[in-house]
Design a protein around this nucleic acid. Sequence first.
DNA 1: CTCTCGGCTTGAACACGTTCAAGTCGAGGG
DNA 2: CCCTCGACTTGAACGTGTTCAAGCCGAGAG
Lengths: 224, 224
Amino acid sequence: MPDTREKLVAAALRLFRTDGYQATTMRRIATEAGVSLGNAYYYFASKDDLVHELYLLVQREHRELAGPRLRRGASLTENLRTVLHAGLDVMAPYQEFGSSFLTVALPPSSRSSPFSADSAVAREQAIGLMREVVTLSRGRPTGVLLERLPTLLWLVYLGITVHWVTDSSPAQDRTRRLVDGVAPIVSRLVGLARLPGGRRLVTDVARVMDVVSAAPAPAAEVAR
Amino acid sequence: MPDTREKLVAAALRLFRTDGYQATTMRRIATEAGVSLGNAYYYFASKDDLVHELYLLVQREHRELAGPRLRRGASLTENLRTVLHAGLDVMAPYQEFGSSFLTVALPPSSRSSPFSADSAVAREQAIGLMREVVTLSRGRPTGVLLERLPTLLWLVYLGITVHWVTDSSPAQDRTRRLVDGVAPIVSRLVGLARLPGGRRLVTDVARVMDVVSAAPAPAAEVAR
DNA sequence: CTCTCGGCTTGAACACGTTCAAGTCGAGGG
DNA sequence: CCCTCGACTTGAACGTGTTCAAGCCGAGAG
């Protein structure tokens, strides 16, 4: 017999998938889990807290789907394309729901924010997947770029996700084509970094990234 | 004596600025405007519709603040830096509120979405501001890049905005430093485009941009 | 066995965004 | 003068996310 908490998560994820974010009310989640409304709030501080569970699930599925698809020795273009398309595959069931998804994931006060402390583990794993992309591909870069590229690719993935959320084209075709276009561009940029002018560029990018990823909100200064 | 609609907008913007998004209820907006709750919904379909007015105001103020600050013959780095900082200056009063801001602006169903048809005019004006940045700066690019660069800079601005929203550092210092770092990088990338290898890059980028900015959602297929 | 204690559970209650049937009121036609 | 029409206005009502005082109940102490 499952834990109350687990029953709630199961009910929430199922309803999110089938009915979307808005139509899934806390009352329905509680009912389907066989507990009272108030009880749901004993385990989850908010509805967004339940969305955080979905965030973790999607991330895990992304790794599981993309990992085996990567090819050692393939071009960076190809492996990056693979990873990004896998991400879209995993998120596809949540596209209708997805509009409200970033809504939930973006604010710094949100536990689901990709930059929040609560997401630190998930973020590390996502960047780890990108590190796989880099190290498996041929012509891997060296030095500082090798170290920074995984995080850069993760930022690209975030950008693609933002586009996906706002993409109203059928089956999100525009985002698919965006991925096909972006992958070779990123590759070419990495190639450009080898040139003498590129060296300087790389160090500048590295410096900026230090600024951005500096200590992401030490503790709980929860905005009201 | 002002129009009812104008009174509502004035009350909403004032409350948004002073109390933030959550604390500004439709009831308070209506009361402060001296009308009934239901009446507010005669002029605005939703609370987010009122936020759209704020979006337009911020955009207008951005142009008014940044325009005079631009210097003809300055480097692209300098003018881009100027424009981005001006954007942050204008948005500063709404940072606490800003978390819920993208929440409102991002979904494709939202009128405030930067990609929505309703924002087409505002978007054109924002890109126009970036065009000023490009044409005023020395060493302006040529050909396809001259044509695409304004939109690219606008996308950079959007990225900065996303970072700003999630930035919990005091006075959003991290985002300020991000701007200082990104401006020279963009400049250097534009310079790189002159090289033989860069030509190819530019055409690829142009192709991707065609995909992304293809007909942004013809009409009303409002997601429920 | 009885009594406490604390983790867990409950449903009523609150304020919110939004909807809607009903009302007001002034302009214009008969 | 009366009547109609339609733009505008109203407040009650609905379902929502969230809070909270109160209750349940099993384990352990006496």
